[in-house]
Structure formats: structure tokens, C-alpha cells
């Protein structure tokens, strides 16, 4: 149960690396665009950006198979893009338009896709954790070998329902991977100020749950740990905890003055640990791609993001009759 080190990482192909590069870049560019649209008043309310944490979802999606489920908190745009949801539908939900995944009725924090097995998008800190266990309960009950990724942050990790869920998940051998995205800050509260037991995955030991910490700025390390976790769940050995150490570059939400950390701290992470830069280096150093190749990808991603933004601006607001639909099935 030690931290997965880069040395443990198996050989990785050019195509895989290019895939990770593309997926992470899509999230980053998408989020930057969302930030811009927010600044223009096209996105309202709360908007929590995923910039900096891209390697977490991209690495774990690489360990998933068709049928696996995922559920997360309100910092959810990255998870949706990583599991293959359409950037246009996500962006249009951010702008509250008819073309959004929830027809504009959910917003940034509340989006879903049955087709892609994405179960939200939950606005209440920690509430998605038992829901994730419940999804895995359903899979076990139905007798398939699907696994659920239940994502939450270091802030949610202090919620009581997380430990209620650990207890039941282990008791019933549920195939759920609890992914603690430790981005070091729960809103403005640093890990150091919120707990004296900062190794979150080790809390699972009290319930008999296996787990480990992993470098969340390294997509290959995340993928390797994810594969281990998923194998554990699929083998019927019950839940697994991954504490993925990562970092968000932007504020908690758009209206975060970031007084709780220094600019130097953020700059240091960006310049020394950036997940996308890391893969870019692997690609260039390994002779897998030239700067021009990567520029072409950048351009392609930019086009996808711009197209999503255009769609999100052009899509009409939901019809007023939508006020009264979808209250009951």
C-alpha cells in the first residue's frame, strides 16, 4: 500500500500519451473558456474550475471500462469531458441553455449523463460518496462486474457520511473506488488547518479498506494506481481508496480572492509539477511528437472549445414551459 512511484509505471505507447495530452488539454482549455464566459456574464452563480487537476480524471478514466460509473462533487466539468460527454452540452449547461445536458436546469454543479454513466455533479459536499457506494451496490446486486468511481475532495473527506459509507462499502464488499482528490484546500481551508491526520487514505484502514496515495500530477502514476484499484474491486475484494494528491491553480470558485495561499506557491506548482507539461515533455523527449505536432493538437482542441462556446451562446434559453417539467417521472 505504498505510494505508486514512477518506477512502477509500465511502458506507455505513443498513442496513449497523445491521448492523455489531448484529454487533459481539452479540460484545461475548456475551463479557461468557461472562466472567460463567466467573466462576460454568460455563466452565472457558482463555477468551480478543474484547472491543475486534469491528470486525476484522465488517468482514472484510462483505467475504466465501458459500464463503469462515476459520480463527483460540484467541481465536475473535467470528469464529464474525461468520460466522453460532449463539450457543447457541458458548456451550454454552464450558460443555462436548452442545449445543455440538463436542459439548462442544473447548471455547473448539476449535470448527468446516463449514456456515459456519469451520475453527477452534486452540490452538497460529501453527498455523492454514499450515492457512489449505492451505484456499486446496484451493480453488485445485478451481478455485473462494473466498478464505480466515487470522487470527493479533501474537504468532503471530513464529512461524517463518508465514514458511514466506508463502513457499509467494506461490510458488503462493494466495488467502489473512493477517489479523494486532495487539492490541498477545502475552499480556503488548507489540509493542515482542517485535520491532524492528513493521510486521508489511511483513514480507510480503520474500516479494513485497502488504499494508497498517488501523485495526482502524474497521469501515468494515476492510471497505474487506478488499474490496481479497479482490479481489486472487480476481483470482489471490496472497495479501494485512492488519495490523489493534486493542486488546483484557480480559486475554489470564480469569486475566490485566494488570500489563503501565495502566488509563489501556485507558480511553483505550475512551473514544476504541471501534469500537461509533464506529458508534453515525455512526448517530445521520447521522440513521439514534435512541437509542430503538438501545436496542431492545441489548435484542434481550441477549435473544439470555441465551437462549444459558440454553441453555448447560440443555444436558446429553455422554453418557459420547462419550469414545470421533470419534477416527477
Amino acid at each position: 500500500m505504498a505510494t505508486t512511484k514512477p518506477a512502477d509505471i509500465p511502458n506507455v505507447s505513443k498513442d496513449e500519451l497523445l491521448g492523455y495530452y489531448r484529454d487533459m488539454l481539452l479540460i484545461r482549455r475548456f475551463e479557461e473558456k468557461a472562466g472567460q464566459l463567466y467573466g462576460m456574464g454568460l455563466i452565472g452563480g457558482f463555477c468551480h474550475l478543474y484547472i491543475g487537476q486534469e491528470a486525476v480524471v484522465v488517468g482514472l478514466e484510462a483505467a475504466a471500462k465501458e459500464g463503469d460509473k462515476r459520480v463527483t462533487s460540484y467541481r465536475d466539468h473535467g470528469h464529464m469531458l474525461a468520460c466522453g460527454m460532449d463539450a457543447k452540452g457541458v458548456m451550454a449547461e454552464l450558460t443555462g441553455r436548452e442545449g445543455g445536458y440538463s436542459k439548462g436546469k442544473g447548471g455547473s454543479m448539476h449535470m448527468f449523463s446516463r449514456e456515459k454513466h456519469f451520475y453527477g455533479g452534486h452540490g452538497i459536499v460529501g453527498a455523492q460518496v454514499p450515492i457512489g457506494a449505492g451505484l456499486s451496490f446496484a451493480d453488485k446486486y445485478l451481478g455485473n462486474d462494473n466498478v464505480t468511481f466515487s470522487y470527493f475532495g479533501d474537504g468532503a473527506a471530513n464529512q461524517g457520511q463518508v465514514y458511514e459509507t466506508y463502513n457499509m462499502a467494506q461490510l458488503w464488499d462493494l466495488p467502489v473506488v473512493f477517489v479523494i482528490e486532495n487539492n490541498q484546500y477545502a475552499m480556503g481551508m488548507s489540509v493542515k488547518r482542517s485535520t491532524k491526520s492528513p493521510s486521508y487514505w489511511e483513514r480507510g484502514v480503520a474500516y479494513g479498506i485497502a488504499g494508497e496515495a498517488v501523485d495526482g500530477m502524474d497521469v501515468l502514476a494515476v492510471k497505474a494506481a487506478g488499474e490496481k484499484a479497479v482490479a481489486h474491486c472487480r476481483a470482489g475484494k471490496g472497495p479501494y481508496i485512492l488519495e490523489v494528491n493534486t493542486y488546483r491553480y484557480r480559486g475554489h470558485s470564480m469569486s475566490d480572492p485566494a488570500k489563503y495561499r501565495t502566488r509563489d506557491e501556485v507558480e511553483k506548482m505550475r512551473s514544476e509539477k504541471d501534469a500537461i507539461e509533464h506529458v508534453r515533455e515525455l512526448l517530445v523527449q521520447g521522440g513521439h511528437a514534435t512541437d509542430d505536432d503538438l501545436k496542431a493538437i492545441d489548435k484542434e482542441i481550441k477549435a473544439v472549445v470555441n465551437e462549444s462556446a459558440e454553441f453555448a451562446k447560440e443555444s436558446p434559453e429553455p422554453d418557459v414551459s420547462e419550469l414545470w417539467t421533470d419534477i416527477y417521472a
Binding site: 449505492g134 451496490f137 457520511q161 458511514e164
Partner: peptide
Amino acid sequence: KRVVDTPITEHGFAGLAVGAAFGGL
């Protein structure tokens, strides 16, 4: 399998059951 005794943990098992309902049960 179909008559499940839970620990005393209302918040947790209510959430878990909601997830099971989302999951098709």
C-alpha cells in the same frame, strides 16, 4: 441479498439507497 440489515447510519444508508435507485434498483 434482498432484505439488507444496515448499521445504524441513516445518513449513509439513505444516500446509498438513493445511489442504488439511480443505478436501476
